[in-house]
Design a protein around this nucleic acid. Structure first.
Lengths: 187, 187
DNA sequence: TCTGCCATGTAAGTTGTTACATGATTAT
DNA sequence: ATAATCATGTAACAACTTACATGGCAGA
């Protein structure tokens, strides 16, 4: 059910179309939820049927019509209700860690290359996040309440990428060394 | 396809039954992949049909027969192949962050209670991981290669829980304060 | 001319969740 | 007695992925 609520959360900040939503799920909302455009369109239909969101068709000159969705009172109530009921931390599911766990069937070089790829990807994500922080959250003390909460999700993303980077560093050091040094990171 | 490979990774370390696998996915393998027993049994049938694993029925006195699965040569090849092809970092999907993002529709108390719940859960996980580290990985220098890789997944889990704990601390401080202080964590 | 953006969807297949189902043994 | 553990599954449903499908406009 969380995709529905992630969409509500996004729409409550600013009503928009399915297309726009898909882009947001690739950007800011993507810090904590990912979804393809197919999922989004399907869920939007369902949410409209349930009356949690309403839709207004906007005619545009020279480009396709767009459907502007906004959260209804019922929708906001449901979101509030969902937030109030406790949830569990998300269980981890990570391909890279499966690979590491089974790394003995592969060569050191294969593993090293993969880790370096991931390190690069995490570094890029981190840099994107840091840029957003610089541009939009320069003065954390002066943020409005909604902005403050969004800022917190960004900080989570930054912390998450740093956690991965530190771990990748450690793995690389270990693999590049000859097994003589300690694996001391993570403390 | 990653569930299949997670199962192969688990079986290659030690052949076992579906029931045992389910328990491992609730323990050590659970650091990086989660799956229910229904998924596991379904996937085991499929893997056996494909010839990636083989099965030997063990008759037991006083308890149900068990099926002991082990990875075939073909299975190991497939695992190796999968490890060699690059994968992307797992996109984040986290209920709690959706809640924070939309936190303005809820009360401070609701959010605070939820964060504290999560902090507790992460603390418990961390303590479980630290215990495993103490018991099984006392001398990281002396580990065999397969053990070293398993140790790396454990260290990842530890680092992950610490990342969450630090973030929860920050959020709690912010919510308990009056908005006068900085949100300075995450750096 | 070709790529990318805008904007919306359908269809098929895989994966994951929840509930149901059985039945003996062991510990409280 | 009752609950927990061992051990295996089926069935229905929900969620997610991948591929297909359309079609105009803007810029290189």
């Amino acid at each position: 059910m969380a995709l529905a609520h992630a969409i509500l959360a996004a729409l409550i900040n600013a009503p928009c179309s399915g297309y726009d939503l898909a882009k947001r799920f690739d950007g800011s909302v993507g810090f904590f939820w990912s979804a393809s455009h197919q999922q989004i369109y399907r869920e939007l239909s369902k949410l409209e049927d349930q009356g949690w969101i309403s839709c207004q068709t906007i005619l545009q000159a020279g480009r396709p019509d767009k459907k502007l969705y906004s959260v209804t009172d019922l929708g906001e109530q449901q979101l509030k209700k969902w937030i109030a009921q406790p949830c569990e931390p998300t269980p981890i599911k990570d391909d890279l860690l499966v690979k590491i766990f089974a790394a003995r069937v592969a060569s050191k070089e294969t593993i090293l290359a993969e880790i370096e790829q991931h390190q690069k990807a995490h570094l890029e994500k981190l840099s994107t996040y840091e840029n957003l922080k610089q541009h939009y959250f320069r003065n954390p003390q002066k943020l409005s309440q909604p902005e403050q909460f969004q800022y917190l999700t960004l900080l989570n993303g930054i912390s998450y990428e740093k956690h991965w980077l530190a771990w990748c560093d450690g793995v690389i050091e270990l693999l590049k060394g000859n097994g003589e040094q300690e694996i001391g990171f993570g403390d």
